[in-house]
Every structure is written in structure tokens, then in C-alpha cells.
Design a binder for these strands. Structure first.
Lengths: 219, 219
DNA sequence: TAGATTGTTAATCGATTAACAATC
DNA sequence: TAGATTGTTAATCGATTAACAATC
């Protein structure tokens, strides 16, 4: 498998499948069909079957998918059958919120270190972690096999932090800063800037411009 | 304009254009070409021209786009030529982080109220806002013409909060909870769940499974 | 004028969905 | 067996990119 190139859209749906499968598993549901998954997740059943079939024949005709087995397989596909360590840079409000979220993640992904360039932040505690100074970034990343970087610094610092992460050997970055990062093509970067999300929502609001009719009455 | 249906992908790029145009404007750059925009934003120039052309002829052949004029036009398209009020539900770490971000948003979008169901949160302050109890949600939304809801409650409460927001007249929702919300089709919902983003990143990590060669040597 | 750059059409590429044989 | 559901091919749909005439 993985011989065909898998599109990003497919990969992004895998964690969504995984999340609902975990829920089914907790409820001790043994089997699920693409139809049921589709209903719950607002996706087309054919799309779900096709997504999964890229990676193997996980289902059984006439039956559906075994929940536990599919969870195992998707974890393998996502490399979550091993623990993946992440580092967070920027111990502001958002950084602290994400660090705390750590313990909500049921999967094998963990923020194992937090950094900040501001001396007043260094040494403060976020749960079990102590905020470290930027000088220790590279060493910590290498010593702890940290592979993912999460950027929650202000926009003007983001590229600089990204460069440091990359030169320290990080493989992928989740960027919360509202800026487009430049990086070599082998580094995977996902933009997670919610200001973009929020502003684009405004497009879908009813205009209001049309609602006032010539005579001043509201329709 | 707006006669053709505009795809979500196009709309999502508009705030990204806007952000960079604002930066150019601050630097007093008067004019920009699709080529330069494309370079900065990692987008194809033809795509940028096409995106903008859906809404009007904003550029000038041989010259490019007038920065101030294009800012004005994109704001109009996104309904950001008027103030858009938003409400945030869930005053946990993430909610507080977002509320504080408020003042980073240069555009006409403002979180004007924060709610939480936990009595211990109610009455606490986040910047200039006081956390209110859920009982006041509907009234506050209507009294303040709040049109967008931001959900930062735990997953098991999210659907319930969405229902309340919708029945209070909200038009669009930004959902940070890791769950698929069900809503009538005229309500616009964007998922902003970063756990999905983070887990999907793991797919792109080098497997490591291949890196240990038969003789035990690492390649 | 010559060079630059738009707006737009046509070509390409990719993703989603429908349909159905295989089979549990 | 009859009903259900997969895996997969073909059809459809939509989005991106290339190319270029128009024109500043």
C-alpha cells in the first residue's frame, strides 16, 4: 500500500474516523458500516470506503468494519502506534491552553517540552512541564526525540522559531501564528490560524445590506 | 457579482489576502501584483487573479492591484465593513486565550460576551469582559446583535451549546470542540479542532520502521 | 512604444460520488 | 438463501493552472 500518493484531504479525515471509532469502542460497539460512519461524520459512505481502501482491505463485505481492528490500523497509518513527542514554543495564553489540552489527547501524541523567549516566562510551570529558555531548544529536541513543533508565538517571531525548530531536526510544524511560514519541502507545515477561520465565517452572514428597503422599512 | 457560487476554498483565501495587504498598507506600499502576492502566500498567481475576479475587476492591467482599494473591497466581500459581534462559550484555557486574542484582530470582528456553565467561572473577568451564566445567553445575543458563536466547551457539551446558540439566532459557529456538530443547513459551521490537525501531522513523519536495516545498522 | 500584468478561457488535474459485482 | 455491505471502476463534479488577448 501507500504506493499511490495519498491526498492531504484523505489524511485529514483519518483522525476524524479514529475519534469516532474510539467512541464506539468505549461503548463496546464491535462493528460499524461506512454508512453509519458517514451519517455520524457528515461524509459520503463511498468516500469513507475509498479512503480506507487506499491503505488495505480492512472491512468485510456484508458485515462492515471491525471497530478495534480499524482503530489499530488507522493508528499504524498515522504512526500513532509509537509515541510521538512534540514541543511547544510560546507559553502565552494559547500555548498554555494547548499544553493543558495534552491530557485530553487519548492518542500517542504528547507535548513533552515548552519554550519561551521571555525571561519572565522561563521557569514557570504548566502542569508537569517547566518553561525552558530558547537556548535549550535544540538540545532538548534532540535528546527527547521530539519530532513535531507547535508554534504559538506572535506572528513576527514565527518564522524565526520555525527556522530554529527545523535546524534542530523537527519534521513537522503546527503553526498557530497568522503568517505563512517558509520551509524546505520535506518539512510538513499545517496552518492552524483561527483568525483566518473566524474572518472567513463573516462572508456567510446575511448581508443586511439588502434588508433595508427604499422606504426605510425592514423587510 | 456573487451570481456564480463561490467555493469555500476561495472564501478561505480572502482573509489571507487581507492580512498580507494590511501589512503592505502599513509599509505604505501602494500597489501589488498577483505574482508578488503569490510568492509571499505560496499560491499560484492565476488562482489569486481568478479568486478576486469572482467579485469584480479590482486590478489594472499592466499595473496590478491598488493595495488600499483591494483591502476595502475584500472587507466589503467579507462583511467586515461593519462591526461583527461574536460570543464565546466556554471560559476554559482555550476560551481565555481566544478572548485575549481579541485585541490582535485588526478587523471589525469582536468577541463582546463570554459565557460559561460553571458557577465558579461566572463573574470572573477576562480583560474587559465578565463571564456570564448560560441563562443570559439568548438575551445577550439578541440585545447585542451577536451573529457568530465560538464554542470552546468540552466535546460532550458542544452540541448542546450549539443548539442554544442557534435557537438564539446566531448565524455561524466556529467550533473548537472535537466533535461534528449537527445544525440546520442555513447555519454555517467551521471546525477548528486542532487535535485533528495535530494527529494528521504524524502521518507525514518518516516511518522509522524502514530505517533499521537487517544487519541492525541504521542507514 | 515595450514591458508588465490583468481578466478570462481552455486545459489539466484531482477529488467526490454513483453504481455494482463480489461476497459475507 | 436473502440482505447487507465492501472494494473498486467509471462518471461526475469542482478546483487549479496555463495560456493569451486586452490594455495600462
Amino acid at each position: 500500500m501507500k504506493s499511490e500518493k495519498i491526498s492531504e484531504a484523505v489524511v485529514r479525515r483519518l483522525p476524524i474516523y479514529l475519534r469516532y471509532l474510539n467512541e464506539l469502542n468505549k461503548r463496546e460497539v464491535a462493528t460499524v458500516s461506512s454508512h453509519e460512519l458517514g451519517q455520524k461524520l457528515d461524509l459520503n459512505p463511498a468516500q469513507i470506503r475509498k479512503d480506507l481502501a487506499y491503505f488495505g482491505d480492512f472491512g468485510r463485505k456484508g458485515i462492515g468494519y471491525d471497530v478495534s481492528y480499524l482503530i489499530e490500523k488507522i493508528r499504524q497509518i498515522l504512526n500513532l502506534d509509537q509515541q510521538i513527542n512534540a514541543v511547544l514554543v510560546g507559553a502565552g495564553n494559547l500555548g498554555m491552553a494547548l499544553s493543558n489540552y495534552n491530557f485530553y489527547l487519548k492518542e500517542n501524541m504528547k507535548i513533552v517540552a515548552v519554550f519561551d523567549s521571555k525571561p519572565v516566562k522561563v521557569g514557570t510551570h504548566i502542569n508537569t512541564l517547566t518553561v525552558q529558555p530558547m537556548e535549550e531548544l535544540s538540545e532538548t529536541i534532540q535528546a527527547n526525540k521530539i519530532r513535531i513543533g507547535i508554534i504559538t508565538v506572535p506572528d513576527f517571531e514565527a518564522q524565526n522559531v520555525a527556522d530554529m525548530l527545523i535546524s534542530s531536526g523537527i519534521e513537522a510544524i503546527l503553526n498557530f501564528a497568522p503568517t505563512i511560514l517558509k520551509a524546505p519541502s520535506h518539512i510538513r507545515i499545517h496552518a492552524a490560524d483561527f483568525t483566518t477561520d473566524l474572518l472567513s465565517l463573516a462572508y456567510y452572514l446575511e448581508d443586511g445590506k439588502d434588508e433595508i428597503i427604499d422606504d426605510g422599512q425592514v423587510k
